[in-house]
């Protein structure tokens, strides 16, 4: 898989978290980073390059730099060339380590950008991996509205004009928080977690028919907004269809797949006079109850079945109980 992730894309967010010093002058665009993994080049420097993950970002820690320092300059340059020759997309140096003579010249010659941070090697490793995981995470943009309702991320879907924004407005007014309206960017994290955010320049604007554009923050205050939220339930708003049978008992859970992650879906039919806001609040609360193991439909049905079994025994007993 060829990616368009480059060294710079990792350095930029890393700067927000720690000190980063670029040691190589800007030059031709570095090679793309091939994966979310990072690599420690120690073995490669010593001469063993089988399985060397050259297309990953390389992290130089104390042992790598210490080894290079221990060599005379000629041997050192040979060791560095051996790995940079394998087309490395970039290198990080941890602990603010001083680079031995020849390192940067070789890096420049091989078009390998180098950055240094004062972080300990394991922490730098962690931050770089975290940034890469985000850059390589599968993502998608959905035509939907995302609201945090009692801490549950409800993703409203449905045709244009069905009332997603109006429902969001109503929910904000009741103390819930808008993440994004109309366009939601979804990123998959750690395989089964979906995180939704708004478009950068569209943040927290609502388009309400009859009013126009409403900015939630100045109107409702900071408590009415949220920057990102895990998406937990899809609430599908639909025009009321007389011929369709909507879920009435809740024993069978409908599911939807977003970026290959299954989440529950609740389909809510819309008709005039129906209070969608309260229904969606209940959807959120019911999801929380199910998370805590309380499934009302299932539990009620279970109790009902047990009662029917028991009442059979009781009826037979009472029939012959002539006291």
């Amino acid at each position: 898989m060829s990616s368009d992730v480059r060294f710079d894309h990792v350095v930029e967010p890393l700067r927000l978290q720690t000190d980063v010093e670029i040691l190589t002058a800007s030059f031709a665009e570095p090679l793309p980073v091939a994966g979310a993994d990072v690599h420690r080049p120690g073995m490669g420097l010593m001469g063993y390059v089988d399985g060397f993950q050259s297309n990953r970002l390389q992290i130089f820690g104390e042992s790598e730099i210490g080894y290079l320092v221990s060599l005379d300059e000629e041997a050192r340059r040979r060791a560095i060339r051996r790995i940079f020759d394998l087309h490395v997309p970039g290198a990080f140096v941890a602990m603010g380590l001083e680079l031995p003579a020849g390192f940067l010249e070789e890096a420049t010659a091989y078009n390998v950008p180098v950055a240094r941070s004062s972080l300990p090697t394991d922490e730098l490793d962690y931050f770089v991996r975290d940034i890469l995981a985000d850059l390589f995470a599968p993502r998608d943009t959905l035509h939907a509205t995302l609201v945090d309702v009692y801490g549950v991320g409800l993703l409203f879907t449905g045709r244009s004009g069905i009332g997603k924004s109006e429902t969001a407005l109503d929910l904000i007014e009741r103390g819930h928080r808008l993440v994004a309206d109309d366009m939601v960017t979804v990123v998959r994290r750690s395989n089964d977690v979906l995180v939704g955010t708004g478009r950068e320049h569209l943040n927290h604007l609502l388009e309400i028919r009859g009013v126009g554009i409403v900015d939630v923050m100045p109107v409702f205050g900071v408590r009415g907004i949220r920057m990102q939220k895990r998406i937990e339930v899809e609430v599908r708003l639909e025009d009321w269809d007389e011929d369709k049978e909507y879920d009435r008992h809740g024993l069978d859970r409908e599911e939807t797949r977003i970026l290959d992650v299954a989440i529950p879906r609740a389909t809510v039919p819309i008709y005039p006079g129906k209070n969608i806001t309260v229904i969606t609040e209940v959807i959120a609360l019911d999801f929380m109850l199910k998370t805590y193991g309380i499934d009302t439909a299932r539990d009620f049905n279970q109790k009902l079945i047990e009662t029917m079994e028991r009442s059979g025994h009781t009826a037979r007993y009472l029939k012959h109980d002539t006291e």
């Binding site: 009435r248 008992h249 024993l251 439909a297 009620f300 049905n301 009902l304 079945i305 029917m308 079994e309």
Partner: peptide, 9 residues
């Protein structure tokens, strides 16, 4: 089983 929730539905 009797008239449970699914049957009722």
């Amino acid at each position: 089983v009797g008239l449970h929730l699914r049957a009722a539905s």
